[in-house]
Amino acid sequence: MPLTALIIDDEPLARQELQYLLERGGGVEVLAHGTNGIEAVDLIQTHKPDVVFLDVQMPGLDGFAVLKKLLDRKVPMPQVVFATAFNQYAVRAFEVNAVDYLLKPFDQKRVMQTIEKAAARLTTPAESASEAKLDALLRLMEEQSQGGKAHSGKVIVRAQSRLLLVNQREICFASIEEGTITVVTPTVEGHSNCRTLEELMDQLDPETFWRAHRSFVVNIQHIREVVPWFKSSYQLRMDDPKKTEIPVSRAQTKRLRELFNL
């Protein structure tokens, strides 16, 4: 029997992309879509799904406010999967508290891993423990939102057999290809010891660095030009010596417009 699911996200393209990946992977029946936190609470109460894919940042009630509302109303808690393009520092908090997450833009393999986790948890009911973990997550997120996260300001980059300490402000962008992360500044191009872009993002200031594409993280202060591309998409021309052009994924187009009032 397939898992039943709801997709809650205020961005139509993100909802469509996630539904496509779920249908492609199989084993999940999407019961309904919601566009904001208020709809999320009503849909969860009505459909009682196995799993909810919940956007963190939405108008009205955000993802965390939705969870608070459900806990306040004593609504049986489904498996909750956060979807987020921002606040990379919170990813570790999701993992520690056993609440899964998907980082936008979505990845097929990662989506299927999440479905496997949700299915495994449903075979070992522990509702009270699950709610306790969610409650702990909410408290942790409140503490982080008040205190923020300190960043060292320096990133280690391997270049020509040397380990360089590079100031975050100097980084133009970072990219990943075949498991290798390249970090580019106006004067240096080298490799990071991080295994994933998520791990690198955890070291960077989330107010300055943006995951514009699955394979690229950019420093918004080093964007030289926004270039309109085909089918209402965009590319970013950076201010590195090569004037590198970086694609903006469909799911990140809304964030681009917010950043530059397009």
Rank of each mutant, 00 (worst) to 15 (best):
M1F: 11
P2C: 04
T4Y: 12
D9Q: 11
R15C: 10
E17W: 08
L18F: 05
A32F: 03
N36S: 13
G37S: 06
I38A: 13
I38K: 12
A40S: 06
I44D: 00
I44G: 04
D50N: 15
F53T: 01
D55M: 09
Q57R: 08
P59N: 02
G63T: 01
F64Q: 00
V66Y: 02
L67E: 03
D72V: 14
V75S: 06
P76C: 09
P76H: 07
M77F: 07
P78N: 11
V80F: 01
F82N: 04
A85K: 07
N87R: 06
A90D: 02
V91C: 12
F94P: 04
E95G: 00
N97Y: 10
N97L: 09
A98N: 13
Y101I: 09
Y101A: 06
L102S: 03
L102Q: 01
K104G: 01
D107V: 10
V111F: 07
A119E: 13
L122D: 12
T123E: 15
P125S: 11
S130G: 11
K133L: 15
K133G: 04
L134M: 14
L137I: 12
L140M: 15
E142T: 13
E143A: 15
Q144D: 05
Q144Y: 03
S145F: 02
Q146S: 06
G147I: 08
G148S: 08
K149S: 10
H151C: 12
V155C: 00
Q160N: 15
Q160P: 01
R162N: 05
R162F: 02
R162G: 02
L163V: 02
L165H: 08
N167E: 13
F173K: 00
G179E: 10
I181H: 03
T182I: 09
T182M: 14
T182K: 10
T185A: 13
G190S: 09
G190I: 13
C194A: 15
R195D: 05
L200F: 03
D202K: 08
F209R: 01
R211I: 04
A212P: 00
H213I: 10
F216G: 01
F216A: 04
V217E: 01
V217S: 01
N219W: 05
N219C: 08
H222K: 14
I223W: 02
V227D: 01
P228R: 14
W229G: 04
F230M: 14
S233D: 08
P241A: 08
K242W: 03
K242E: 13
E245N: 09
V248D: 02
A251S: 14
K254D: 08
R255F: 00
R257N: 11
L259H: 09
